[in-house]
């Protein structure tokens, strides 16, 4: 099986690469259309701001092709952190920006009710809908988060797990073959690796 990690100049993708390596996979770091199309699964990382990631991905990646791979060829896809957020319809970080509109919803600042931002550290996820991605992962285990904005899905059915930080937000989402995760599985030790391993086994 071939896995592509989309390299568009956002974030520490080497850690993601290392974690897949640890699981005995050798992913391809690429933004090349042909290489992406040759892969069976696609992972989209992302750190920084929504608007910055969107503008970077538009310059580096053929978005229509990527959407084709996801929406019509139905390749399993995983967006991580801002890589998940940009799957939304709109983001409101710095300015209103169109997302890739693959999972309907908006990305807005977390209403932390006085808790400090960014939301940095280990927080638990409550599984609200069972899915293969949680094989061997019980509800309420801790994962590593670092973000100030959260994805509010339009259709509640798309939310698989929630996390509480001042307010409850979706920490794992899914629509058909597309998964998104707000925490960093590549930085979440045992259960993060388990989560990635589950995705790779889909």
């Amino acid at each position: 099986m071939k896995v592509a990690i989309i390299d568009y100049g956002s974030g520490n993708i080497k850690s993601l690469y290392n974690s897949l390596n640890f699981l005995n996979y050798t992913p391809i770091l690429t933004n090349d259309t042909k290489e992406i199309n040759d892969c069976d699964k696609i992972i989209l990382p992302g750190v920084g701001s929504f608007d910055n990631c969107i503008s970077k991905i538009h310059t580096k990646v053929d978005i229509e092709n990527l959407k084709n791979e996801i929406l019509f060829k139905k390749k399993f896809f995983l967006g991580i952190c801002v890589g998940m957020q940009i799957l939304s319809s709109f983001g409101f970080e710095n300015r209103k920006t169109n997302g890739l509109n693959i999972i309907e919803g908006v990305v807005e600042k977390i209403n932390t009710k006085l808790l400090p931002l960014p939301h940095v550290g280990w927080n638990n996820i409550e599984i609200i809908k069972n899915d293969e991605i949680f094989n061997g992962i019980e509800s309420l285990l801790d994962f590593y988060f670092v973000h100030s904005y959260r994805f509010k899905v339009k259709n509640k059915e798309h939310s698989l797990a929630e996390t509480n930080y001042g307010e409850k937000f979706s920490s794992v989402i899914k629509k058909d073959n597309v998964y998104g995760v707000q925490f960093h599985p590549e930085k979440s030790q045992s259960y993060g690796l388990k989560f990635l391993s589950n995705f790779l086994k889909l």
Partner: peptide
């Protein structure tokens, strides 16, 4: 750092 990050999956 690079070596540590190959074995410890934490920030």
């Amino acid at each position: 750092v690079e070596n540590v990050s190959k074995k410890t999956f934490m920030p």
